[in-house]
Design a protein around this nucleic acid. Sequence first.
DNA 1: CGGTTTCGTGACGCTTTTGTTACAGCGCCT
DNA 2: AGGCGCTGTAACAAAAGCGTCACGAAACCG
Lengths: 238, 238
Amino acid sequence: MRAKILLVEDDASLIELVTYNLEKEGFDVVRTGDGEEALTLAEEEKPDLVILDWMIANLSGIEVCRRLRRAPATANLPIVMLTARGDEADRIRGLETGADDYMTKPFSPRELVARIRAVLRRLRPALQGGALEFAGIAMDTTAHRVTRDGRTVQLGPTEFRLLRHFLEHPGRVFSREQLLDAVWGRDVYVEQRTVDVHIRRLRKAVNAGPNGEELPDLIRTVRSAGYSLDAVPAMQAA
Amino acid sequence: MRAKILLVEDDASLIELVTYNLEKEGFDVVRTGDGEEALTLAEEEKPDLVILDWMIANLSGIEVCRRLRRAPATANLPIVMLTARGDEADRIRGLETGADDYMTKPFSPRELVARIRAVLRRLRPALQGGALEFAGIAMDTTAHRVTRDGRTVQLGPTEFRLLRHFLEHPGRVFSREQLLDAVWGRDVYVEQRTVDVHIRRLRKAVNAGPNGEELPDLIRTVRSAGYSLDAVPAMQAA
DNA sequence: CGGTTTCGTGACGCTTTTGTTACAGCGCCT
DNA sequence: AGGCGCTGTAACAAAAGCGTCACGAAACCG
């Protein structure tokens, strides 16, 4: 999942510099140089993090920070202040107003990215390790939650591990033996056909549509080889 | 609740300076100048945050940071690096190794405190004396009061700590072992099934409605994984 | 086109995991 | 001392998930 960042800054050359570096690192960037608009965008764009300059039009960065914290919808939004005001008093004021980090200009773009990552690592764990996603199937391993096109999918422990294994290696074909090793454990010994049954259960759960509908099957059977999770639904014979 | 901070630093005058400022601000301080000992203390003292110097005896600060992150018991422990190594490359390395913030010497003690507060505010909300709230459950950690949709909920000490832990990490699944570590303490050893009983007591108290009614259960059981506090009540099959 | 192999599917005991209740011990307060 | 609230453990009940089998369908092969 890509993280979206709201950049609130009015210096054109800085906007370009920061945007370039963030996009290079895989972030989506939304920009504004206006304090009032920043508040609106923070609600509407639902960014994962805000970078705030102090001196901007209409509302100071510190005031934007305060209002973001006060509004329930954005009270939890990660904020990094990035400003020329580098006095001790300013830094402390920024942090105490609710900023999660505070950097002063001039700054290193790479350090900015590192600090953003550090903040997101704590506050949006789903963006880091815990999230797997492929072909409309999303898995949050820390919350133990799976969704298909937004609808939550109910899985038993074994199906969960099985799906995770597929999501970790999308497109790759695994033999029943490999799956038993990876999902059940190297020492456990069960019939290979057991895999079939769990594939069946996994398919049933993942392909269940809104009501009684069937969604396209993303688990491909490779005859005499095994199974794989695949973005392209199997072809149809009319 | 007072927060406990582990200060890993070997310069005597700095130790004094930092300790003085932290204690003045209401933190408990545990100190060591030794990298190996830092790891031990991080486990045994259960600090709420670690301040790490880079140049210390036995293990470098960066290595201590890496090992703390790797050990499950301390993987989540907030870390602030405080060091003379201020190159861009060092800062980035520190942050990418898992530090939550990175300050360089010389530094302002008041800024250090502000940054520590900023980190703790996010990672240990309960320490700020503030209110925790999630999905209609509100907890005032200082007054030791809990309400569900406005009605006050009566909890025993253990259930209170258990709920607080869930509120601090909403949505996340914890194994019984993790809960015992976090809520009972790392050194206490009780049966894992004890957790089940307290979950039961917590559910009973939190889900008690106006008269004899049952409110939707917000504590989700994740079979063979643990429990989590969750906004979405489990779905029903008719 | 039969024969053969491989896979899909539903049913069914069995085991594991969790829910629930009861109880005995402990510390604390009056 | 007695009562009271809280805790951890055990024991039993309920639920959920698991692995295997049997049979039919589909794919493959000559």
